[in-house]
């Protein structure tokens, strides 16, 4: 595909356009298109073998696609040279890999040099403090626990204050306290305008602060779920849900009516819906807010793919 054929998403920090990857004749990823805006957190979810790791390798320029393009701040990652990676901070393995004979601080110094950072001492200390690694900073990495290595990975990724952060399973191997720390840092970075893309199996953990979830399955982007933009949703159980749902669709002030198992899901005014159902002599057993359960949604989506 030529560069001219690919359209760009205005303002996107990171964008993938019709990205495809084949190993031999076997397609691993097909036609993946999405964009992450500055300040947005994008979670990639999908079962094992769905192509998450391959997609992350393509996004970071470690692997090359069979078709399509990835742009970072508008710059082609594959043909723009290594300069395109200046805006990128990434950890693509869990746990993050470091030279085991070097100390955590020495590893960060090497990364700072390769990133072209001048006078990085103060910043290295800052990230070591932020990730609670200062006490072990001068010990060889081979003595680090799994969690410490994972936190050092995040430290290395945010060291040069990147505008784009790509993380593969950033909380893998961490204790609950470490997990909270990572989520806190990622949410803070997004608030500061960093575009964050992470792959995760722990959707309930990240649903508090992610903006979009890309659900991968069989090498395709099955769906992109936008969180936090949905209207107030309710669910109710009633004696004849199919008939009640059909009726509610005709009621003004009630929208997006659907059936989920034996429950009727709708958006709009719960008082209006309840009054209308009672007026028509339906037996309403309960009515409550329907909190969006990302994990349940993901399970359903992947099952039905």
């Amino acid at each position: 595909m030529s560069e001219a054929e690919v359209s760009s998403t205005p303002g996107a920090a990171l964008e993938a356009e019709r990205l495809g990857k084949k190993y031999g004749r076997k397609p691993v990823l097909e036609n993946i298109t999405f964009a992450v805006q500055p300040g947005e957190v994008y979670a990639l979810a999908g079962p094992n073998g769905s192509g998450k790791t391959t997609l992350i390798r393509l996004l970071t320029g470690l692997a090359f696609p069979t078709s399509g393009v990835v742009r970072m701040l508008g710059q082609d990652v594959y043909n723009g040279g290594y300069v395109a990676r200046r805006a990128l901070g990434a950890v693509v393995e869990a746990p993050a890999a470091f030279y085991p004979h070097m100390t955590g601080r020495q590893n960060l110094e090497m990364i700072a040099f390769l990133t072209g950072m001048a006078d990085a001492e103060a910043r290295i200390r800052e990230v070591l403090v932020r990730l609670e690694l200062l006490a072990v900073a001068d010990q060889p990495v081979r003595t680090y626990s799994l969690g410490q290595r994972q936190r050092l990975g995040l430290a290395s990724a945010i060291l040069h204050e990147p505008q784009i952060l790509i993380l593969d399973e950033p909380t893998s191997g961490l204790d609950p306290q470490g997990i909270n720390k990572v989520h806190e840092i990622l949410a803070e970075l997004a608030w500061k305008g960093v575009a964050v893309l992470l792959s995760t199996h722990h959707l309930r953990e990240v649903s508090a602060y992610v903006d979009k979830v890309g659900i991968l399955g069989g090498g395709r982007l099955l769906e992109e779920v936008k969180l936090g933009t949905k209207g107030e949703t309710y669910r109710l159980r009633v004696d004849d849900p199919a008939k009640a749902a059909a009726f509610l669709k005709t009621v003004p002030g009630v929208q997006n009516v659907s059936l989920r198992g034996v429950n009727v899901i709708f958006e709009g005014s719960p008082n209006v819906a309840l009054a209308a159902l009672v007026r028509e002599h339906y037996q309403v057993q309960f009515l409550e807010p329907d909190y969006f359960d990302l994990y349940d949604y993901y399970r359903e989506r992947v099952k039905n793919a």
Binding site: L62, R85, L88, A96, A97, F98, Y99, L114, T115
Partner: peptide, 15 residues
């Protein structure tokens, strides 16, 4: 095998 090659290649430095 250590995974360090990926870490190094992620930096804005020519391969």
């Amino acid at each position: 095998s250590m995974g360090t090659l990926k870490s190094v290649l992620l930096r804005p430095s020519p391969r």
